[in-house]
């Protein structure tokens, strides 16, 4: 009798231990990523905000005083507003729009392929992401530089030999090239998941392909459009490598400017203020974009 009792107790205790160990594992599996995000994202961001609110003295480390002078400098000086801010908004929005146009056509084509071939071409898009950005830029360089392929072809067909490399156009082409795969990937999944019967139903009530696309396929692909364009936009708004390597110092985007202030001028507080301003700007444009999309297509709640 007592032996049975003690056996039961052991069992209960054993089970209790198991639950605790499981809970511990369960909690830590949430806890550790949480710690990671706090340590490697929120702390540096907080440090950056604090730096942007510090005074800058050449030769001494930034001293936190809560000053807004760096923000005031950035947001009032026409040089920064017209050059950096406007160039950044213009190039990141334009590159996103073009990446969407090119990416949508590609994604639509890929999504309509039979599944096996779809996988192959999708992996080609993924591979293009795997190539280092600097290498891709040098590839573009060869194509676009004076005397390069595009230049020569333009000359041959009698078009003016316009300069592309080290101009805004060159940077724009670079940004589009980087952004297209980010637009294509989410779109392939979303377009391929649209039930073909929905398109057939549109055809059955008299809609031709064009009408079916705008009434059914495009609205249903909007989640992919939004995801792709948001990635492309935030990536390009913060672009550094492309304006640095393809702009030749002439095309000034905010990411590059922040780098210059920090690495060349040694003005960390001002660099931080530019960085934070860029982040706020991106968030603001994103918010406006999402608001407009959800208002226009209210049914995608």
């Amino acid at each position: 009798m007592s032996a049975t009792q003690s056996l039961q107790r052991t069992e209960i205790r054993g089970r209790g231990l198991g639950v605790n160990a499981g809970e511990l594992l369960g909690r830590s599996s949430v806890f550790l990523p949480f710690v990671f995000v706090v340590v490697f994202f929120f702390i540096p961001m907080g440090w950056l905000v604090a730096t942007s609110l510090s005074t800058h003295e050449i030769g001494s480390p930034p001293e936190f005083t809560g000053t807004l002078e760096h923000y005031a400098r950035f947001w009032t000086d026409p040089f920064y507003l017209e050059t950096a801010l406007w160039t950044t908004i213009k190039l990141s929005v334009l590159s996103t729009v073009f990446a969407l146009l090119i990416g949508y056509v590609l994604a639509y084509y890929i999504a309509e392929l039979p599944p096996q071939r779809r996988g192959l071409i999708t992996s080609m898009v993924v591979v293009s992401l795997a190539v280092n950005i600097v290498i891709r830029i040098f590839g573009l360089n060869v194509l676009l530089m004076n005397g390069g392929l595009v230049h020569s072809v333009f000359g041959l067909i009698g078009m003016p030999r316009i300069r592309i490399m080290y101009t805004e156009l060159g940077v724009l082409i670079g940004l589009i090239q980087i952004a297209v795969p980010y637009v294509v990937l989410p779109l392939i999944g979303v377009i391929a998941a649209i039930d073909p019967a929905l398109k057939e139903a549109a055809a059955s009530v008299g809609a031709n392909r064009y009408r079916t696309f705008w009434a059914v396929t495009f609205p249903l692909s909007l989640p992919g459009v939004v995801a792709g364009t948001l990635i492309a936009f935030t990536l390009n708004a913060a672009a550094f490598a492309i304006p640095a390597l393809m702009g030749g110092g002439r095309v000034r985007m905010m990411g590059m400017m922040a780098y210059e202030q920090a690495a060349i001028q040694g003005n960390f507080p001002f660099a931080a203020a530019i960085g934070i301003s860029l982040t706020i700007l991106s968030l603001l444009i994103t918010a406006i974009y999402l608001f407009v999309v959800s208002r226009t297509f209210r049914t995608l709640r």
């Binding site: 039930d195 019967a197 929905l198 057939e200 139903a201 549109a202 009434a215 059914v216 609205p219 249903l220 297509f297 049914t299 995608l300």
Partner: peptide, 8 residues
């Protein structure tokens, strides 16, 4: 068969 009603 699955009605194919446009969800939006």
């Amino acid at each position: 068969q699955n009605y194919a009603l446009w969800p939006h």
